[in-house]
Simulated assay, not measured.
Amino acid sequence: MDEEREDRPSFGGASVGDLVQWEAGGALQFEAPKRVRFVSEDGKWIGVEGSQTGIPMSEVIVEQKGTAQPPVIPFEKPGVALTAGESEWMRNKVGNDTNVRLLVEGEMGPKEIGKLIKLLQAQKAVLEDDDNEEAAN
């Protein structure tokens, strides 16, 4: 009986950088394990390389634990290529018809994020000034 339990896969527990398989309805969904790109904040969903589909953590089998520093896997939009040394650091929807894609070349740490925040605040102020000028005319 214990041998049967050892043969059954354990579901969940995936982290960024792990190689995982997805089992849904009793069938494996990937030809080969895929690397985890992100884990949702609540830990219930993951995303894997080459896909924008969320996968339930409860259907994930960890095939191989990742390294301490998982690779940065660029998430390219069809028709939009990254330049050499560039990686997609973040992609978010910020409005009904507005999406943001942050491409980075080099390291991105707290210092760089702080500078980016200052740049975005300055850009916001410029756009607010433009809106105020248009409203005055």
Rank of each mutant, 00 (worst) to 15 (best):
P110W: 01
V16W: 01
V20H: 07
W45T: 04
M108H: 02
V20I: 15
V62K: 10
R91W: 01
E41M: 03
K111Q: 13
Q123V: 00
N99Q: 11
V60K: 05
G106R: 10
E59M: 09
S51W: 01
L120Q: 07
L103K: 11
F11T: 09
S87P: 00
D7R: 15
G47M: 10
E3H: 12
D18Y: 06
P110K: 13
N96K: 09
L119N: 09
A136D: 13
P9G: 05
I117T: 13
G26L: 08
K65A: 15
W89I: 01
N96I: 04
S15F: 03
K34A: 12
A125L: 09
D2V: 09
D131A: 14
I46N: 05
I55R: 09
P74K: 02
Q52V: 05
G17R: 03
V48N: 06
G26H: 08
E59G: 12
R37S: 09
E23K: 13
V39F: 06
V100W: 07
G17F: 04
L120S: 08
E86N: 02
V48L: 05
R37L: 15
S58D: 13
V60Q: 04
A24W: 03
G47N: 10
Q69F: 11
Q29H: 07
P71H: 03
L103T: 08
D2I: 10
R5V: 12
I61N: 04
N92R: 11
K118W: 00
F75G: 02
I55F: 14
W22A: 12
E41H: 11
V100S: 02
D129V: 00
R101W: 04
